[in-house]
């Protein structure tokens, strides 16, 4: 179990805010815990806040990709937010491309991206929560007329 990194609930998403220099075992523990929590809470998204992180090496970078892949399998989306410029420059030099990971400048923008992604992948459960409107689940034309959930 990872006591190092608290996993918080943020609406229909989980928020992980990395504040300390993690050793590899903690990183793996966090990854496991997240998978469990996504399933347990039915979260639709994961936000990993790394604004306090001063280096991202290949191990942590790989965790981001794994969590993104894993959450996709569990029908959730992952956004990494707050990467510092020096960290980004270093990652490019290291050759790590964070495949499949979405990123945003800060928490607020990450939240907005998540809302958009989740709106694109609404589930029966989400629709059941909208009591006053009918939304076709099968929408071959791809033209959905739903309110932007971020504005609610």
């Amino acid at each position: 179990m990872s006591q190092q990194v608290p996993v918080l609930r943020l609406g229909n998403a989980l928020l992980v805010s990395i504040q300390v220099d993690l050793q590899d075992d903690d990183v793996l523990a966090l990854q496991e815990e997240l998978a469990e929590r996504i399933v347990a809470t039915g979260a639709r998204g994961v936000i990993i806040d790394i604004s306090a992180v001063d280096i991202v090496d290949s191990f942590i970078g790989r965790m981001f990709s794994s969590i993104a892949a894993l959450s996709r399998v569990l029908d959730a989306e992952t956004v990494v937010v707050g990467m510092r410029p020096a960290v980004a420059i270093t990652l490019v030099e290291l050759g790590l491309s964070l495949d499949g990971v979405r990123t945003a400048l800060d928490l607020e923008k990450g939240r907005a991206i998540l809302d958009r992604l989740i709106a694109d992948r609404r589930t029966v459960r989400d629709i059941a929560q909208d009591d006053d409107e009918f939304v076709p689940i099968d929408d071959p034309a791809g033209e959905r007329h739903q309110p932007d959930p971020s504005r609610r």
Binding site: M83, I89, L91, T103
Partner: peptide, 12 residues
């Protein structure tokens, strides 16, 4: 080029 890629990693 690297700057463009780095900006993308940051979400811009």
């Amino acid at each position: 080029l690297k700057t463009v890629v780095a900006a993308r990693l940051m979400g811009a």
